[in-house]
């Protein structure tokens, strides 16, 4: 089940606001992944971390096209 982040309670997102979803992994309270010497938690991923993973082609984080 995909997890959608950064959905505001109301109104449109700013155009620059990235949105992404987690795919292909079990949705757990903590979802650790190590990349480039850093530990990420996919269950609590910052936008910057998400962009970094997307940029490297990480298969479990994909951008949601507006």
């Amino acid at each position: 089940m995909a997890k959608v982040k950064n959905i505001p309670p109301a109104g449109d997102l700013p155009a620059s606001e990235p949105r992404y979803k987690i795919v292909g992994l079990q949705m757990l309270e903590t979802m650790p992944v190590h990349y480039a010497g850093e530990k990420y938690d996919l269950a609590d991923l910052s936008d910057q971390q998400a962009e970094r993973l997307i940029a490297k082609g990480y298969p479990h984080v994909i951008r949601i096209e507006p």
Binding site: G24, L25, V33, H34, Y35
Partner: peptide, 11 residues
């Protein structure tokens, strides 16, 4: 190996 190391099980 310089890929990601995913510790979360796949679906």
């Amino acid at each position: 190996y310089e890929g990601a190391v995913t510790l979360t099980p796949a679906t």
